[in-house]
Amino acid sequence: MAEKMLELQDITMQFGGVVAVNNLSMHIDQGEIVALIGPNGAGKTTAFNCVTGMYRPTNGQVKFEGKVIVANYPQGKMKSMYAGENKGKYKHEVAPTPDKITRMGIARTFQNIRLFKTQTAFENVLIATHLHRTSNPFTATFRLNYKEERQMRELALSMLEMVGLQDSKDELATSLPYGKQRRLEIARALATKPKLLLLDEPAAGMNPQETHELGQFIVDIKNRFNLTVFLIEHHMDLVMDISERIYVIDFGKLIATGSPDEIRENQDVISAYLGVDEE
């Protein structure tokens, strides 16, 4: 009954000779919180970038709500260089730009916070309402869209209130403390009205208390907006706390998948993490 929201099929991303993501297949059902974990440099962010259109995978395809949104096969000089699997399985290319994927209903945050640095917190969120506009440059310039403009502002403000940043709304985004910047990024992503939310290390740099609160917050917005959440995170407490299923990758390859309890006990995962400091 649970519908597959997102499905990665044999996704391989090769940079020159480096295979950063190696034949990764996974799926996320509607309404789930699923985590992708792995040691530093395992290829987690790269996998995200393949879903959001920032990178074009070398091979494989991504489906969203049953529709192929990204697909590729080794072409050009990759024909001979390709070091991954399933060569020849995919025969067509689908490569929309990231903005198109966001418009389909996939929003993301960035591991290395990317706020609009000359803009206030409020303006940062407001910009993310632009994609649902019905105005054109003419009607917008001459304010014939004033009703829509008001709705955009109301939506942006309500998103800020939800992440508890209404009091900082007129502050420059980059002057906010780290934790607030992370929450602002989430508010900005939500303002695009996504169905699927991708969070790349949302708790990075947070203390245990903040991390715990963030976990509650993620569950909260998931329920409130009927979201599906795909999460990359190094804080194991957070991951174990809120995810329904976990995928573990190491050197770009899937090494384990299962419920938090299964992953905790998995020998491969333990050895992959052995000697690797948790941040």
């Binding site: 990231p98 903005d99 966001t102 990317r114 609009f116 640095k117 303006e123 910009i127 105005s135 440059p137």
Partner: peptide, 27 residues
């Protein structure tokens, strides 16, 4: 007027960070 409209905000977003602007659905 254009700069203060939603299109102007999109332009400033592109100036500040192309990648983030694109991720927010701005063509």
């Amino acid at each position: 007027m254009l700069i203060h409209s939603t299109y102007g905000r999109a332009l400033k977003a592109i100036r500040d960070d192309e990648t983030a602007a694109e991720a927010m659905g701005i063509n």
